[in-house]
């Protein structure tokens, strides 16, 4: 019997996606290395920040999205559930489904050495809802909102050399 099924695009709130094929290949290793300042960096005020950036695909180009970044998010540790950075990704009338602008720079010296988990959660701006079980990243699923998430694992280490390594995805930056 012929049937018609509503396509996904007829949803009230089309969920954003992270198009894996468009992520910078330097950010794809399972664990990203990040190095703290070496002694030469300390004297020159240089550092090797790790620049994380993710494309976000959204079929509804007019929807206002918001990307939220978290470090070591753990619901059993309330202080870890705070938003470290918010990237507003406003909609537009242009027919562009992949948006850039979800980006976060990790300064290895602001973290202890060892493994850390960096989460990016993106959803429609109006979809986020206050929650005690999933603070700052819950969305109103009952109203049709849905979030997309991406997780980076970074290994923060002391620089093995006088200067931290200048190679992607990190890059050594010094003041002019």
């Amino acid at each position: 019997m012929p049937q018609s099924v509503d396509p996904l695009t007829t949803r009230l709130h089309q969920p954003p996606r992270i198009p894996l094929a468009s992520i910078d290949v330097n950010l794809l290793p399972p664990v990203l290395m990040a190095f703290q300042k070496g002694p030469s960096d300390l004297l020159q005020h240089c550092s090797c920040p790790l620049k994380l950036a993710l494309p976000v695909e959204e079929d509804d180009t007019s929807a206002d999205l918001e990307a939220r970044w978290f470090i070591d998010y753990d619901t059993s540790n309330f202080s870890s559930t705070g938003i470290v950075l918010t990237n507003p990704l406003p909609g537009s009338l242009a027919n562009v489904t992949i948006r850039s602008g979800a980006a976060f720079t990790v300064e290895p010296d602001s973290l202890a050495t060892g493994l850390h988990v960096i989460d990016m959660v993106v959803a429609e701006q109006t979809g986020f809802v206050a929650s005690s079980t999933l603070p700052n990243r819950a969305v109103r699923n009952s109203d049709g909102y849905q979030a997309a998430e991406y997780r980076f694992v970074i290994d923060v280490r002391a620089s093995p050399n006088p200067s931290c390594p200048d190679a992607l995805p990190a890059g050594r930056t010094c003041p002019l």
Binding site: N87, P90, E107
Partner: peptide, 20 residues
């Protein structure tokens, strides 16, 4: 709808930090 990202530049002690 213009996105603004503000990054505090490193000083002599701490590295860059993002602003809201």
């Amino acid at each position: 709808g213009y996105q603004v990202t503000a990054t505090r530049l490193p000083d002599r002690v701490i590295s860059s930090r993002a602003a809201f």
